[in-house]
Amino acid sequence: MTVSTTNKYEAIIGSDDPLRPENVEMSSKEVCLFLSEYAVSLLGCGATCIRLEKNINRMAAVFGKKVDLTIMPRHVHMTVRHPGKDDIFTSIASVKPAPISFSLNTRLSELSWSVADNHIPLGKAKKMFLNVISSDTENPWLTLLLASCANAAFCGIFGGDAIAMAIVFIATALGFNLKQVLLKKGVDTRIVFFICAFVSSVIGAADYLFPYGGTPAIAIGTSVLYLVPGIPFLNSFNDMLYHHYICAVIRFIDAMVLTGCLSLGLCLGMKLMCVSMF
């Protein structure tokens, strides 16, 4: 039997009165603070600007409010007003640095639909929100295994032989594990990308040093592909389509900086191992 999203949340939070008269009396300040918190969490997990706008407006309409938003990659500036009343509140919230998570993105979007379709009151919506953001966990070992298999598969797609694929698997496993550890310790993302690309390329160069494989160039070239910042690139173009040009440009620059860091790491690794590309 399929359990709807609303029922799933109600099982956790407990059902509430269906008339929801409290929504009518809510101040803009209360709504604004909740929506700001929601917005920075959604943006932090890698959502596009248009998704953020739609989700926020969907929930604000249920609370009887209008919202004006300015979305920047690091901050969300929001004004909530009650139409026809002198009740306006503005807040600026900072985006929380968090890893890309489409799982969290999905659950926060589900929450917005749940609030809109069932006219869920603010107090209950807050509880549901806290439940969503506190339960976004992953199995780091499973992710490590799948990422290593993915990069090895990449090597195969680009024509690498079995030896090259095995080397890329090991290079990715070590590099990705290092990335997980360094990010957990709070090291700057750019430094993490540089170090991980360096480590993976040094290990990827093993195919050059030992005469077992026949595709060493493919092994070293694909050993760092797990670091490609694809989501910021995609989000950047998506934002551009919906006229969020400032956000699009900043996301693009951010992705380019990370690509530059990974290229520098790869370059240094190849120089250290005396590997030439041609």
């Binding site: 499973l142 290593s148 298999c149 993915a150 990069n151």
Partner: peptide, 20 residues
Amino acid sequence: KDALLAAVAAIGFGAISRIP
């Protein structure tokens, strides 16, 4: 082989971006 490797690569990169 190409289709299978593409599927494996996509699932792995899906895990990196934490899709459900």
